[in-house]
């Protein structure tokens, strides 16, 4: 076969694939897919997966310290779910990586070397119990908004994982709300803990959705839309977050560190103060306040357990 024929075959396959996407069909792991579709999915889902794994760590700091027996159990279950979400997403991305000869081990290597990034929020400090509440309420709230949007993803294995995840995220948000309400209804000292935590997390929450698009759409975003992997813009998601949470924050008698935030009825959108996007870049590059320490936790435990994985590999299917 000469190269011209091969190329035109390739073009035809791509066109057929795009037609499937446009018909609203779902793609499975064993379907033919263009390389850029696969790469785009890998980039998105790998980041999502390690964000769940790394996202367990800030709240985990409060797992042994949770203030009552019930809260100890609830936060353990919640953080366990986060690790479980990491597991689901890792499996999805591992299946995408398999044809490229890559495995879970490679993903962890990429995480440790900084090639694979995780969400900005999980680089931040969580110095008080109220932070655990705010993470459950607002960080999980933000996550529900982005994940719900992706339920319609053209890649069926990702959508299936997200259905499981979203069902559990509802419990997470309630878990967070319950902690937050207890503090809000509590002593002045408890309310102060909560207010401080909201102030601390606000810029990170704005950053969570990514920079606004300035009217131009990045090639990344364009590809996601073309392939129906992700269909809403960062700003649309951030606005949806404001719609849901800003009123509730005010209902609790809390304030926001942004005095300018207001809803414009005529425009139907929120005006707010932009966070420092330069700082955002620094954080996701691994220069956040807790980036190094949390990566170190993951790395130490990973290295400490190498002998365990080797031992299990030696038992590969012996008992099978």
């Amino acid at each position: 076969m000469n190269t011209k024929v091969a190329e035109s075959n390739q073009d035809e396959k791509r066109a057929q694939f795009q037609a499937r996407i446009e018909r609203g069909e779902k793609i499975e792991a064993d379907d033919w897919m263009p390389d850029d579709y696969r790469n785009q999915l890998i980039k998105l889902i790998a980041m999502h997966a390690v964000s769940e794994i790394m996202g367990a760590l800030p709240e985990k700091e409060w797992v042994p310290k949770a203030p009552t027996l019930r809260r100890k159990l609830a936060i353990m279950a919640k953080v366990q779910d986060e690790v479980g979400h990491g597991q689901l997403l890792l499996r999805v991305v591992e299946d995408l990586l398999a044809p490229l000869g890559k495995t879970r081990e490679d993903l962890f290597e990429d995480l440790f070397t900084g090639r694979l990034k995780f969400h900005n929020v999980f680089h931040m400090k969580a110095p008080t119990w109220a932070d655990a509440g705010v993470i459950g309420w607002l960080v999980d709230g933000a996550a529900i908004i982005t994940q719900t949007m992706s339920l319609d993803s053209s890649y069926a294995p990702y959508a299936r994982a997200l259905y499981r995840i979203c069902a559990e995220e509802k419990f997470h948000a309630q878990h967070g709300e319950s902690i937050v309400l207890e503090l809000a209804e509590g002593t002045p000292a408890q309310r102060q803990l909560l207010q401080d935590a909201v102030n601390r997390w606000w810029p990170a929450l704005l950053m969570f959705f990514g920079p606004p698009d300035d009217g131009t759409i990045s090639s990344n975003q364009q590809l996601n839309m073309q392939y129906k992997i992700r269909t809403q813009t960062n700003e649309e998601l951030r606005q949806a977050f404001f719609d849901k949470y800003v009123p509730r924050i005010f209902h609790l008698g809390l304030t926001l560190p942004d005095k300018t935030i207001r809803y414009d009825e005529a425009e139907g959108k929120w005006h707010y103060q932009q966070p420092d996007w330069e700082e955002f870049k620094q954080i996701v590059r691994g220069n956040g306040p807790r980036s190094a320490q949390r990566l170190q936790l993951r790395k130490v435990s990973y290295e400490e357990a190498k002998w365990v994985r080797d031992a299990l590999l030696a038992k590969q299917c012996v008992a099978g």
Partner: peptide, 17 residues
């Protein structure tokens, strides 16, 4: 509970918890 997030295999982490 101190082990949470630190177990040798992700699936085991969930089961241990």
């Amino acid at each position: 509970s101190e082990w949470l997030g630190l177990a040798p295999h992700i699936e085991e982490d969930v089961a241990f918890s």
